[in-house]
Computed example of a mutant assay.
Amino acid sequence: MGRARKFFGPGLGRALIARDKGCSFTDCTIPAMWCEAHHSDPWSVSGRTRISNGVLLCGHHHDLVEQGNWTIDMRRGIPWFIPPPYVDPERKPRRNRYRHVAVTTEHPSPATPAEQSANEP
């Protein structure tokens, strides 16, 4: 899709639903059917329409992010939300723990060859 289309089509929408399972914003419980796709890098400033630049957000959190105080950091295609200084002076990235329990704020590192072989059946 890239820059040719501004809106996420049905295929990309299904991919966002499969990945995010609902609103991606920190601990929001709104289901995917009530969410809309949002560009983490705004389309208006050359953001591309693709899964790695999209997040599902409920209307409330979509408006909150659009106000520009929260930043979305895509890490390996997963959305992390960086709060404004008045919410968290350290601006630690946050993720929706309601749907994604076992996550950290660090970038996941690739598995070593020994770890890969240990995980194989």
Rank of each mutant, 00 (worst) to 15 (best):
V101N: 02
P113T: 03
R19P: 00
R14F: 06
P93G: 05
P89K: 13
H100V: 09
R97V: 12
G68H: 11
A118S: 12
P110E: 11
F8M: 06
V101M: 09
W70T: 09
C35Q: 02
R50V: 06
F8G: 00
P42I: 07
D88R: 12
S40W: 01
D63K: 12
G2Y: 05
G47K: 04
D73N: 14
F7E: 10
V101L: 12
D63A: 13
C23R: 00
M33D: 13
N69P: 00
A111V: 06
V87R: 10
A114D: 09
T104C: 07
V103C: 07
G59M: 12
W43L: 03
A118F: 04
V103K: 02
S40N: 15
S117W: 10
A102P: 00
D88F: 09
A102S: 13
P85K: 11
L12C: 03
P83G: 07
A4V: 05
A102W: 13
H62D: 05
K6E: 07
R97D: 02
F8H: 01
A18N: 11
P10L: 10
R5L: 08
P113S: 09
R5M: 08
S46L: 02
P89N: 11
T112M: 06
S46C: 07
P121H: 11
E90S: 12
C28L: 06
R50F: 03
W34T: 03
H107R: 12
A118C: 03
E115S: 04
Y86M: 05
P89Y: 14
G47E: 01
V55H: 00
S46H: 13
T104M: 07
T49L: 05
I82Y: 04
R94T: 10
L64Y: 05
R19E: 08
E106D: 15
D41T: 12
T112G: 04
G59E: 11
G47F: 00
T29W: 02
W80F: 15
W80D: 03
R48H: 03
Y86S: 08
S109H: 12
A18M: 12
F25T: 02
M74H: 06
A102D: 14
Y86H: 15
S44C: 13
R19M: 09
H107Y: 15
P83D: 05
G68I: 09
D27E: 10
Q116H: 03
P89R: 13
T71M: 06
P85G: 05
F7S: 08
E36T: 09
A118T: 03
N69V: 06
P89C: 10
T104D: 10
V45S: 12
G77P: 00
H60N: 03
G9T: 04
H100P: 04
L16M: 13
L57W: 05
R50N: 13
A111T: 04
P110V: 08
V45T: 15
I72Y: 03
P89D: 07
R91D: 07
W34K: 11
D20S: 01
L57N: 00
K6I: 08
N119I: 08
P110I: 10
R50Y: 08
C28G: 03
F81V: 04
A114W: 07
H61M: 07
A4R: 15
T49C: 12
G9M: 03
K21Y: 00
E36S: 01
T105H: 10
P42E: 15
L64A: 08
R48M: 05
G59L: 09
I30V: 14
H107K: 13
T49A: 07
S52T: 14
G22T: 02
I51C: 03
H107P: 00
I30F: 01
